[in-house]
Design a binder for these strands. Structure first.
Length: 160
DNA sequence: GTATTGATCTTCT
DNA sequence: GAAGATCAATACA
């Protein structure tokens, strides 16, 4: 399976909206680990979201992967996600995890030297920024980035 | 078409 | 005990 990341949000340890804001806990320990690792957390009782650690050791900075464009293994994604349109396979952080079968067992995986899941360098794209989604604090930081003109980004819901 | 709400559980207060 | 980096089904126009 492969997908191009088209939408992300940045979270820093001095950011009240970040899990790492209140310091290191059992859940977010990975965020304070070495960069290039995967941080997976469970939320709303039924959804997983995944981040890539970007800060140095002990910094607690990471980037939330919000949406991706399916490239390969679309059949496998459909099997996990159910019968759905191509656009909706990865158009959201929890959908992305479901499509890739990511759960907490993968928390802490090395995405640089890993053998089962890893990151590749993509083509440069122009990005547009905007406010982050689903948080109540830290709204003054427009740290949401998405590939300009790409139809595979998550759909903005009315009222946000 | 858009708006509202239920599902459901880990983590921190 | 409460809130949460959400999604999908349902209700309404």
């Amino acid at each position: 399976m492969a997908a191009r990341i088209v939408e992300v949000e940045a979270y820093a340890s001095d950011d009240p909206a970040s899990h790492s804001y209140r310091g290191r806990t059992a859940r977010n320990a990975v965020m304070f680990g070495p960069p290039g690792h995967l941080y997976v957390y469970f939320t709303y009782g039924m959804h997983h979201c995944m981040n890539v650690v970007t800060g140095r050791l002990d910094e607690g900075n990471a980037v939330l992967l919000r949406a991706a464009e399916p490239l390969q293994g679309i059949d496998a994604m459909r099997r996990r996600r159910g019968r759905t349109s191509l656009h909706e396979l990865c158009s959201g952080p929890a959908k992305l995890c479901q499509a890739f079968g990511v759960d907490r067992r993968m928390d802490g995986w090395d995405l640089v030297h890993g053998s089962e899941m890893w990151l590749l360098e993509g083509e440069p794209v122009s990005a547009e920024t905007g406010p982050r989604v689903g948080i109540r604090v830290g709204l003054d930081r427009p740290w949401r980035f998405r590939a300009e003109g790409n139809p595979f980004v998550s759909r903005a819901r009315a009222g946000r």
